[in-house]
């Protein structure tokens, strides 16, 4: 793992109408890391991700990916939104959803080719969902749905994965499949940024950490940043009822 910065966020301030959510944040994500983002409820974790991806307006600041603006490299970045933002009634199959990961590589009007389909099927196979490929998305369990979204990210063939709570409410099996995928991606030189909610598995799953509570409380290598003091600074001590004396 190098120490090169792959995502550089500078002076990011965001507000919902006139209520500031994030204040003047500088964040650097290290290339080829598995970075977790934690923070108490309402700390602005999702807002932060949406801000750097340009999905929500920012008041100030900028984000650069591999030294470029997001728009220039959006095909290289796969984002997995929170599953609550998805329209589950939409009539579509698992394979179809994964195929959407290819859209960013296609121009206007162009339809996915046989090659795209093949990539999508491989992505489904990688997360053990091949047998469900023709199943309607609404009929899958929570964990299975999440795996389909991981497959969509795989099919996008991105360099950076940005995930908003992918492990929230999924079964143990799915959790280990997703983590296997993240580990495998890291071996391939890719970077992942994941909003995480479980302090128990934090140190085991990730190697870098950003603690957010409206501003950046701490960031850097997991071993250095995950301290009782930092968590208390982010008002996270009572939140998880966890003894962080590791």
């Amino acid at each position: 793992m190098s120490n090169k910065t792959i995502i550089e966020v500078e002076d990011l301030t965001m507000a919902y109408s006139d209520q500031p959510v994030l204040w003047d944040n500088d964040v650097s994500i290290v290339e080829n890391s598995k970075t977790a983002i934690i923070g108490p409820n309402g700390a602005g974790k999702s807002t932060f991700l949406k801000g750097i991806l340009g999905l929500l307006p920012t008041l100030s600041g900028s984000a650069h990916f591999m030294g470029k603006a997001y728009k220039e490299v959006q095909a290289e970045i796969a984002y997995i939104p929170q599953s609550s933002e998805v329209n589950w009634d939409f009539p579509t199959t698992a394979l179809d959803v994964v195929l959407m990961g290819r859209y960013v590589h296609l121009g206007w009007i162009k339809r996915p080719s046989q090659k795209d389909k093949k990539i999508a099927e491989q992505a489904l196979a990688q997360i053990g969902m091949s047998e469900f490929k023709n199943r309607q998305i609404s009929q899958l369990s929570g964990g299975q749905k999440q795996r389909v979204f991981i497959a969509r990210a795989i099919a996008q063939d991105a360099n950076i994965y940005i995930m908003d709570e992918p492990l929230a409410g999924v079964d143990k099996n799915t959790e280990s499949i997703i983590m296997d995928f993240l580990n495998e991606s890291q071996k391939q030189g890719k970077t992942s940024v994941v909003v995480h909610h479980d302090l128990n598995t934090l140190a085991e799953y990730f190697d870098h950490l950003v603690i957010i509570n409206k501003r950046i409380v701490a960031q850097g290598k997991m071993t250095k940043v995950l301290t009782q003091e930092n968590l208390e600074n982010a008002n996270m001590n009572g939140d998880y009822g966890l003894d962080v004396s590791v």
């Binding site: 500031p20 204040w23 008041l59």
Partner: peptide, 9 residues
């Protein structure tokens, strides 16, 4: 807010 933002910065 913009003024505050610069002050904080």
């Amino acid at each position: 807010l913009k003024l505050d933002l610069v002050i904080v910065h």
